[in-house]
Nucleic acid binder design. Structure first.
Ligand code: FES
Ligand code: FES
Lengths: 138, 138
DNA sequence: TATAAAGATACCATACCAGTATCATTATGT
DNA sequence: ACATAATGATACTGGTATGGTATCTTTATA
């Protein structure tokens, strides 16, 4: 099980890199070299962050990406939502069909409780706090 | 995302049914009728519970399954482990490859924290407590 | 005006999930 | 004895999501 998928993970790491770089423009090329990620995939990810207003992009030679909002205002929960949709520990969907017993499901209460805790933790975890407390050194 | 997959879910519901039935033997046939689950799939699930010592099975005519241990001693966390392996919110595995940066991953601390809470909640949630507090009525 | 960047989209391989399908074994009722 | 009704074991399968590629277009700069 992966609460965080690869694209979200790459997004987080790329954002951290951009913050730490202290440059006013970072290109995909530079990120690929610094973070060893597959270029085209990372590009798709950054484009999405651009569409969602997390990054601001500049086309053309010497172009690249810049943070559009401050890192204290970018939350991991938000990034997960962008790439994976609303955070849910249990979708109650199997094979495209929703559980018919969801109204009487005896598991739902406890799962909802865990889910609520999880969401609140992720929604209060910002990129800047990751950089402060994290083991970002190699 | 599904913290609980369909086989685990069916297993839990079947166990609850067996407890509530108060019979000393329940067959797959009866469970299928009572719970509207696909027969062969449920059979595979109950066989696994048998192998793992949760149920005791009896072959032959009038055969079926009986609880092998008391419902207070059967925990949801344990059932998840049986059908899905060790509970993890983040496997750090994508495409069969483990994250190379796991040693320096800035996300790991927080995820581990959420994971620990989740596991402890699931490991203390028994079948009997589900039956007591749950909305098991239709 | 060549170049180097991002934007947009279509495509693809693999793994996993939720099952089926079969055949073998074992106990029971008549 | 033997048909029947149950579980045991295991192989197979279709659909979907994930983690990517591959291409082509657009835009800015030196
Ligand atoms: S797990 Fe979906 S209704 Fe219980
Ligand atoms: S998510 Fe796996 S190492 Fe960070």
């Amino acid at each position: 099980m992966n609460l965080i998928t690869r694209n979200t993970d790459y997004a987080i790491r790329a954002l951290c890199y951009i913050v730490k770089s202290n440059k006013n423009m970072v290109s995909v090329r530079e990120l690929v070299e610094g973070l060893k990620m597959p270029g085209p995939f990372l590009r798709k990810i950054l484009q999405e962050l651009s569409r969602k207003g997390i990054l601001r992009s500049y086309k053309g030679k010497n172009g690249g990406f810049v943070l559009a909002i401050r890192p204290e205002k970018i939350y991991v929960g938000e990034l997960i939502e962008i790439f994976q949709g609303p955070i849910k520990l249990q979708e109650h969907i199997f094979r495209k069909k929703i559980c018919p017993e969801i109204k009487s499901c005896i598991l739902k209460k406890k799962i909802d409780e865990i889910e609520e805790y999880t969401i609140s933790e992720l929604n209060s975890l910002s990129i800047s706090s990751l950089l402060k407390t994290g083991r970002q050194d190699k």
